[in-house]
Nucleic acid binder design. Structure first.
Lengths: 196, 196
DNA sequence: TTTAGTTGCGTCTTGGCTGTTGCAATTACT
DNA sequence: AGTAATTGCAACAGCCAAGACGCAACTAAA
């Protein structure tokens, strides 16, 4: 996490940067207009240090988004979207994504903003998601007529909704299960058990 | 729309207030921290007029939320949630809500904030939504085992998602159709047509 | 141990924004 | 037509946040 990628930071500086990023996620997630002084407080550093490490509020938010998207991308890799069975991958990735989003929700929202340095990375993540849904459709898990772009958007919305409300601290695996079930089955009446 | 409910405003003042509310929705929807000067510009009034009509930014946002929730509530009434057949009501209300949310999206987001004067009204709207889903479940449209609170949250998320992205200017009736279909059926493989 | 990097502190400056006010001009209502 | 309400304008005061800077103390790396 070298800020300028020119010379590695000393360990204490690295710790400071990380504390600032975490504090920024917390503080700016509650109020995007919160003063940098508040970010510094929560990070346990001086405001001058925040300014030394991030030249502006925007620079801080961009670094936050960058950091978050990297984690998100890794979480998706860990679910093996291209090799695991589609339904297994879908469950695993969903749970992994929930874990990242639980911690870096604000940053990830900011990472999709048009013009942001991370918008490209988010587009690539969306393509990988669509790719997984294509595999799922080909495996008979999704309806052949489904509009995969709308599926993806609904999927994202379900993830977002799962991170809000009183059950957002439930086990990510359980939330993932509910998301996938909702995505595949909706809420209509269950068909009666018929002979296989 | 008497601001103080004590004496009706003159017609020009009413027009100003309405212009300010619309401008605020636009400007603050793009940047919640935008200066009041900018709201005034877009409204075509002086900043002093904005301040005369709304004592603070917060007062403006509260008025905005109040106005939006009133419209939302009316949109739901118009769909006859307690008397129309459940599926008819669901389609109609969804389309009505989409129309209101298209215009007052920022305001409605703010109307759910904890501690806001409109949070109670939003809770009542949620209860009416749950009531309609109960009717739908009793009519066999929703699965008897469905968790209606999660259904409601997914429904809201689908509405929110429908208002984002490149198709948000599509006819609300078409969007509503898609929302209801997604809610009821999800994206799993379609059962093969079986003999009725 | 030495050296270099990092930090907190305190202070100052600057700019932007908000809120307020009085008054002449404009608009609306009776 | 007369009266009252509304408005734009210009100016001011106050506050807050961001940015910058020098320096002694602290921390980390070699």
């Amino acid at each position: 996490m070298g800020e300028s990628a020119q010379r590695p930071l000393r360990a204490d500086a690295e710790r400071s940067v990380h504390a600032i990023l975490e504090a920024a996620e917390r503080v700016l997630g509650e109020d995007p207009a919160a003063p940098m002084e508040r970010v510094a407080e929560v990070a346990g550093v001086a405001r001058a240090t925040v300014h030394r490490r991030f030249t502006s509020r925007q620079a801080l938010v961009e670094a936050l988004a960058d950091n978050a998207v990297r984690r998100l991308s890794q979480a998706i890799d860990d679910g093996r979207p291209d090799t695991a069975p589609p339904l297994v991958a879908l469950h695993g990735i969903t749970a992994n994504v929930l874990r990242v989003k639980t911690t870096w929700s604000f940053a990830l929202d900011r990472s999709t903003a048009e013009g942001s340095g991370t918008a490209r990375a988010q587009e690539e993540i969306a393509l990988r998601c669509l790719s997984l849904f294509t595999r799922a459709r080909d495996a008979g898990i999704l309806d052949t007529a489904a509009d995969l772009e709308w599926v993806r958007r609904v999927y994202y919305a379900l993830i977002g909704e799962s991170l809000r409300g009183p059950d957002s601290d439930t086990d990510p695996d359980i939330l993932a299960e509910r998301i996938v079930r909702t995505l595949l089955h909706g809420f209509g009446p269950r068909p009666r058990a018929s002979a296989p």
